[in-house]
């Protein structure tokens, strides 16, 4: 029934105000904070700190 009574948005409208979830952005910021790059003998290692 929902399909009958709700207006279907056009593709253009659907793309408006689209954004990632807050959790995704927060995950990326946390990932960035936890990531440390250590260079040993010219090789760079990425480590994730808890």
């Amino acid at each position: 029934m929902r399909k009958l009574y709700t207006k279907k948005l056009s593709k253009k409208d659907q793309l408006k105000d689209l954004g990632p979830r807050k959790e995704t952005v927060q995950f990326l910021l946390n990932y960035s904070k936890a990531l440390r790059v250590v260079e040993t003998r010219g090789i760079k290692f990425g480590t994730i700190l808890n």
Binding site: L28, S32, L35, V37, K44, G46
Partner: peptide, 8 residues
């Protein structure tokens, strides 16, 4: 992006 930037 993060990996690339952090590795310089």
């Amino acid at each position: 992006v993060i990996n690339t930037l952090k590795r310089g």
